[in-house]
Design a protein around this nucleic acid. Structure first.
Length: 227
DNA sequence: GCATTAACCACAG
DNA sequence: CTGTGGTTAATGC
């Protein structure tokens, strides 16, 4: 893999554009670039917070571990973003796991160095916190969906999220297994199968393995709105 | 009571 | 891993 300089890297997220040449070189000297394959864990919930993740390319899931080995899938990373979680400021532990859903290109930045730059460059810090806040806002919206909607509404939510926030298309190859989709929509994998079949029978969507086509988005939106 | 919702289990492909 | 069918428990008319 070619080692692109941070300065000329077009994959890095917008926050980095606020860094001075010196700051970017400092980051560069304290980061590694790693490619993760599907299923590989990028960060592990509970482990010591050593590095910030600069996610550059690919697809990954943010998930937290529940009891009995059951996960809750909180979000999907599909574009460049700096990820680390509250551990950077709070308890020096990762508060969630990050797992690659497809081959993903990531830079790992020493957290001490990241913090150093955070403290000296206000525009960078503000931009980073804006991204950070947006991410947590999304989590809160998920909680709302998970706690106040019934299964069909949650499934419609999950499918529309994939279409609008991840793929920007109404047809896509779902990067999640039925099990993972269940972890995202807060239901068992059996319920996922049943509801997808119902949606398919009602011609709201078409499914073929991992391939999903949303056929009647307006009706799906109505299911989403109707509790 | 009866219907609905949704999880758990078993099992086939 | 995916999908189906049966069972069960809780909740709501």
């Amino acid at each position: 893999m070619e080692d692109v300089k941070c300065n000329g890297c077009h994959l890095k997220c917008d926050s980095f554009k606020f860094l001075t040449k010196d700051e970017l070189e400092l980051i560069e000297a304290n980061r590694s670039t790693v490619v993760f394959r599907k299923g590989e864990k990028i960060i592990r919930q509970g482990s010591i917070f050593k590095e910030m993740v600069s996610f550059n390319q690919g697809l990954a899931k943010i998930h937290i571990e529940g009891t009995g080995g059951k996960d809750l899938l909180l979000g999907i990373i599909s574009s460049s973003e700096i990820i680390g979680g509250p551990g950077l400021f709070h308890d020096k532990r990762y508060s969630f796991s990050l797992t690659a859903l497809t081959t993903s290109r990531i830079c790992l930045i020493d957290s001490e160095i990241f913090m150093q730059v955070f403290k000296t460059n206000y525009l960078f810090a503000e931009s980073f916190l804006r991204e950070f806040s947006r991410r947590y806002n999304d989590f809160f919206q998920r909680f709302l969906s998970l706690t106040q909607k019934q299964m069909h509404g949650r499934m419609a939510d999950a499918l529309l999220f994939m279409a609008d926030s991840v793929f920007n298309a109404d047809s896509f190859d779902l990067p999640l297994s039925r099990q993972e989709l269940g972890e995202f929509a807060g239901m068992s994998k059996e319920s996922v199968c049943r509801i997808l079949k119902e949606f398919k029978d009602e011609k709201l969507i078409n499914t073929n393995g991992q391939k999903i086509d949303i056929l009647k988005k307006d009706l799906l939106c109505r299911i989403l709105e109707a509790i």
